[in-house]
């Protein structure tokens, strides 16, 4: 199976006043296409920073990141945007829907950005039907509950058929039952579409449902294990 994400010797340092703060240090791992990987760790361990770097939202201080064979860590902002639009999808803890667009319009954005306006509407309708919001398409985010907003967000994440999907604490802002429903929906859609899913979470129950768990502490990988779901224990360092 092809490597979809390679992280090589990645470090990230922030300057705070006169102090240097190292958030990630010499991180290495590879993710193969089709898997579901959880990145876990306590608050401040560098999970979200790592996600931001892997998705090309930020630039590492040192090291390299590859999506397929494309080195994204050295691309400029617009080139990274093109890679994200082509291969990557996002699900956020706080949903990040655009408040001025309806549910349908929010889902259409990634496809329209690709220039696929013709299929944008029909595919977005399908996806909203799939996530159970067929009757809420013209509603604005402020008119939807948290769970509904996250379902719109999932529909949007899958709309451009991404090869790699990043989810940042996708159930973090939701209650138990709603969170469970969202998790199920996410895994079902992931399976249907054959997407590689990278989930950042500190919910160990959710992490246990993935194939592989990467544990971070103080900016370093302290363990990288396959789970029982995967059925083997090979480690890709």
């Amino acid at each position: 199976m092809q490597d979809i994400l390679r992280v090589r010797d990645v470090s990230k340092t922030f300057i705070s006043g006169s102090r240097e703060l190292t958030v990630l240090s010499e991180v290495n791992f590879t993710i193969k296409e089709g898997g579901i990987v959880a990145i876990v760790g306590p608050s401040g361990s560098g999970k979200t920073t790592l996600l931001g770097l892997c998705a090309g939202l930020d630039r590492p201080t040192t090291g390299e990141i590859f999506i397929f064979d494309q080195k994204i860590s050295h691309l400029d902002e617009d080139e990274k945007a093109a890679v994200r639009n082509q291969y990557v999808g996002f699900i956020f803890q706080n949903f990040q829907l655009i408040p001025t667009l309806t549910a349908l319009e929010n889902v259409m954005v990634p496809l329209e950005l690709q220039g696929n306006s013709k299929i944008a509407r029909s595919r977005s309708r399908e996806l909203l039907d799939r996530v159970g919001l067929g009757d809420r398409m013209t509603h604005y985010p402020s008119q939807l509950s948290g769970g509904e907003q996250q379902r719109v967000s999932i529909a949007r994440a899958f709309s451009n058929t991404p090869r790699l999907l990043f989810a940042d604490e996708p159930t973090g802002n939701l209650d138990g039952d709603t969170g469970d429903n969202i998790e199920n929906l996410l895994f079902e859609l992931n399976q249907e579409q054959g997407t590689t899913l990278v989930i950042v979470t500190h919910d160990l129950e959710l992490a246990q449902q993935t194939n592989r768990i990467i544990r971070l502490k103080s900016g370093k990988i302290i363990s990288d294990q396959l789970t029982l779901v995967h059925g083997s224990s090979s480690i890709h360092h």
Binding site: A82, V83, Q86, Q96, L97, T100, L113
Partner: peptide
């Protein structure tokens, strides 16, 4: 700013 950040995250270029 939050909407622009989402647009950018979804692959919109700065000029767009």
């Amino acid at each position: 700013i939050p909407s622009i950040a989402v647009f950018r995250c979804l692959g919109m270029k700065a000029n767009q």
